[in-house]
Deep mutational scan, measured.
Amino acid sequence: RTAFSSEQLARLKREFNENRYLTERRRQQLSSELGLNEAQIKIWFQNKRA
């Protein structure tokens, strides 16, 4: 289980509010910017949509 920092969570929530689905390219960008792997971001979005 991933423990996200408050900064990472704030960024993910802001991104989710703008778009509930990420393109592969956007997921790669977020992964690089947040220091998370793409799978972690993908799962976070899946869980948030559920």
Rank of each mutant, 00 (worst) to 15 (best):
R1H: 13
R1V: 13
R1I: 13
R1S: 13
R1A: 14
T2M: 11
T2F: 13
A3L: 11
A3S: 12
A3C: 15
A3D: 12
F4S: 02
F4Q: 02
S5M: 03
S5L: 04
S5W: 03
S5G: 05
S6D: 13
E7W: 11
E7L: 08
E7H: 08
E7I: 07
Q8P: 01
L9I: 12
L9V: 08
L9F: 04
A10C: 10
A10W: 06
A10V: 08
A10F: 05
L12Y: 01
L12P: 01
K13V: 15
R14L: 11
R14E: 13
E15H: 03
F16V: 02
F16C: 03
F16K: 01
N17W: 07
N17Y: 09
N17D: 12
N17E: 14
E18N: 10
N19T: 05
R20C: 10
R20N: 09
Y21F: 12
Y21T: 09
L22G: 02
T23I: 02
T23V: 03
T23Q: 04
T23M: 03
E24I: 12
R25Y: 11
R25T: 13
R25I: 11
R26H: 06
R26M: 08
R26T: 06
R26W: 03
R27I: 15
R27N: 08
Q28L: 10
S31T: 05
S31G: 06
S31L: 03
S32T: 12
S32V: 15
E33T: 04
E33S: 04
E33Q: 05
L34C: 02
L34M: 06
L36Y: 01
L36Q: 01
N37S: 15
N37L: 12
E38M: 06
A39V: 12
A39C: 14
A39Q: 14
A39R: 10
Q40T: 13
I41G: 00
I41Y: 01
I41C: 03
K42N: 13
K42W: 14
K42H: 15
K42P: 00
I43M: 12
I43R: 13
I43V: 08
W44A: 02
W44M: 02
W44R: 01
W44C: 02
F45M: 02
F45Y: 04
Q46K: 12
Q46E: 13
Q46S: 09
Q46V: 07
N47M: 14
N47P: 02
N47A: 10
N47F: 12
K48Q: 15
R49K: 06
R49D: 06
R49E: 07
A50D: 09
A50Q: 11
A50T: 08
A50S: 09
A50H: 10
